[in-house]
Design a protein around this nucleic acid. Sequence first.
DNA 1: CCTACCGATCGGTAGG
DNA 2: CCTACCGATCGGTAGG
Lengths: 185, 185
Amino acid sequence: MSEASRRDDLLSAAGRLFVEKGFAATTTRDIAEAVGMRSGSPFYHFRSKHELLRAAILAGLEQGCQRLVEAVEGVDDPVQRLRVMIRAHLASLLEGDCQAPMLILESRSLDAVARAEIAAVAASYQEPWQAVLDELAAAGRLRNSAPPVRLLLFGMLNWTSQWYRPDGALSLDEIAGAVADLLLR
Amino acid sequence: MSEASRRDDLLSAAGRLFVEKGFAATTTRDIAEAVGMRSGSPFYHFRSKHELLRAAILAGLEQGCQRLVEAVEGVDDPVQRLRVMIRAHLASLLEGDCQAPMLILESRSLDAVARAEIAAVAASYQEPWQAVLDELAAAGRLRNSAPPVRLLLFGMLNWTSQWYRPDGALSLDEIAGAVADLLLR
DNA sequence: CCTACCGATCGGTAGG
DNA sequence: CCTACCGATCGGTAGG
């Protein structure tokens, strides 16, 4: 009911629609209708459609970072920590309101300034991943932890959004397990 | 110069632009301009913008299938065959004119009939992959070859298009090697 | 394949 | 946050 809540409603609807149909194919009227507003009203909360995309991506990344931090709290064993991180990432990606990694693909529609801002937050999301991979390599559970490994891992994770079906044969836990098994020796 | 050549020019330009900017953000005027035509002329070759997307995806998939078949010809050892297939897939994806796996993402803009047609061709592309994975599992070079493994493998491969840079630190051969090393034990 | 054009849609705004 | 609206752009077409 508060203004912040209506703004969040718009962000959430925009994120969902941008992921589903793409930025260009989603109209500001679609977004307004999704939250029960008239066509001009989103512009009371956001300066432009691009600003709505930028804010949705940043909000999704922040939420993903938070969930990741909460998930690893107190998990010291690197193998267990990796498993927990994989599970948390898949949950954000496949169950969350805002599928940040897929939204980031739409940032090609933004200008260089906004893209740089998003890249900086995305980089901070990667840090705990590189850290746990380095620990695993040191412990001999990984052949090596050079950057390509992290990039390939994110490929496995993010691409699931292209084939995962909530009513399909594979649960989130099963997918998370398959990813970890493939990575660890 | 022939009519088929102009049609192919349009397909190639459309594929490149659809991957770069997305289907909805690419105008038929962009495509026309890319091949030196006026705005109305693409519609002499294709009934609609959607038909242009459908044809570009199918052409890209056919090309990818062909390259894959050529690459594995005479390669009997499953380990070597997997490596060759990975390399061929990455070449189509990162060097080819038509990056089919990324174009397929844009098929969300097509109707159910066209999507089903595309899904059928895409499925036939997957067959040799599942076959080589099954052989590798039988030979003990893979823990198992259940479907998630193939899907995760395609995730590693296709997601490279999000971070690969031709002038970057990693060559196609290095990436291909990293993927194979991660998969095989 | 070009010229000339149309109807529809869209992002965004003024004023309340 | 709504009403009423505008200018620009876009997919597509008729006629040659």
